[in-house]
Simulated assay, not measured.
Amino acid sequence: MTGRRAQLAANLARVEERIESACVAAGRKRADVTLVVVTKTYPASDVRLLAELGVRHVAENRDQDAAPKAAECADAPLTWHFVGQLQTNKARSVAGYADVVHSVDRPRLVTALSAAAQRAGRELGCLIQVAFDAESGRLGERGGAAPEAVPELARAVAGAEGLRLGGVMTVAPLAGPYAGHPGEAFERLREISTRLRAAHPAANMVSAGMSSDLEEAVRAGATHVRVGSAVLGDRPRLG
């Protein structure tokens, strides 16, 4: 086993133990939580090693990095998630490789993704990104819709050709009342998810939690945790 493969295997085992322990503590089944490994800034060679080690879900946040990486790993049995802020002019590219877009936060993006998915002949899963540090009607620092905008956006996604409403996503906020309290933000997301599923029963995905707070996310009902550095190590500096 190469040094990098051994390192990734050991890191994956540690993350798996954390998820398993969090599920036990929350009274949940391990199978109910999907690990999505965030491979941003890391090379396609790492993605291939992860696939060999049994990882089936990977995520990227920049189309210019993700598109060539997904193409290079097209023969690997992977589901690709797009988790970053998405400009409408990148929708066509993202629709070519992403299976799930976690960052749907405005009507114009819904329209662009729908057109792109239809052009590509694919169905895209879409999560509404909820920003708990956003003022009403304004995007948060890292994108996202205000909580009160979720029902309308969900209706737009559900009615759009080529799109499938998957559920909701959030990133632990850096500002506002939930700053420093990710567990409370995740609990609020659970409430929003519950209301969403009353109107859209199939929209049962809850994407929350990263390397530092995955336990709190699992406790709050996350179905997908997005883990990067705990698996791949400290990120290379960009620029």
Rank of each mutant, 00 (worst) to 15 (best):
F186R: 05
V94M: 06
Q129H: 09
A98G: 04
H181K: 15
R155D: 15
G121Q: 08
G180T: 11
V104W: 01
A98P: 03
A146N: 06
P173G: 13
G180P: 10
V104G: 01
V94W: 06
A156N: 04
R155I: 00
G96P: 10
P182A: 13
V110D: 05
L174P: 02
L163C: 08
A131C: 10
A156P: 01
L113R: 05
V94P: 13
G180K: 11
R164E: 01
V110P: 04
A149F: 03
R138G: 00
E148G: 10
G143V: 12
R119T: 15
L127W: 02
G183N: 12
A117C: 01
R138N: 02
G121W: 12
A179Q: 14
T111S: 11
A134D: 12
R142V: 06
L124H: 05
G176E: 13
V101T: 00
G166K: 00
P107I: 02
G183W: 12
D105Y: 06
D133A: 09
L124A: 01
E123H: 02
A131Q: 09
P182W: 12
A156M: 09
D105M: 02
V150Y: 02
G180Q: 14
V168Q: 04
G137L: 12
S114E: 00
A112I: 04
L127S: 05
V168G: 04
E148A: 15
A145I: 07
V100G: 00
L139A: 15
F132E: 00
Q129G: 03
G167M: 09
S93G: 09
A158F: 03
G121I: 10
D99L: 02
E123Q: 13
D133T: 03
P151F: 04
S103W: 03
A160E: 08
A146F: 08
C126A: 12
A145E: 11
G140F: 04
L165G: 03
A95V: 08
G137D: 08
D105K: 04
S93T: 15
P147I: 02
L165H: 04
G96N: 13
V157R: 11
V150D: 06
E141S: 14
A146D: 15
A120F: 04
P147Q: 08
G162V: 08
R122M: 03
Q129I: 06
M169N: 09
F132W: 14
E152C: 02
A179M: 13
V94N: 10
F132T: 03
M169I: 11
V110R: 08
L127D: 06
A160C: 05
Q129R: 07
P107A: 10
A112C: 07
C126Y: 00
A131V: 06
F132H: 07
E161R: 15
E123R: 14
G96W: 12
G180R: 10
S136M: 14
R164C: 02
G144Q: 08
A131H: 08
A112P: 01
F186M: 09
R142N: 15
V168A: 05
L113S: 05
G137I: 10
R92W: 05
R119P: 06
L127F: 00
A112L: 06
K90P: 08
S93M: 13
R142F: 09
A134Y: 03
V130I: 05
S103C: 11
I128G: 02
L174F: 13
E184K: 14
E152K: 10
P182I: 14
E135M: 07
A120E: 13
A95Y: 12
A154P: 02
G176F: 11
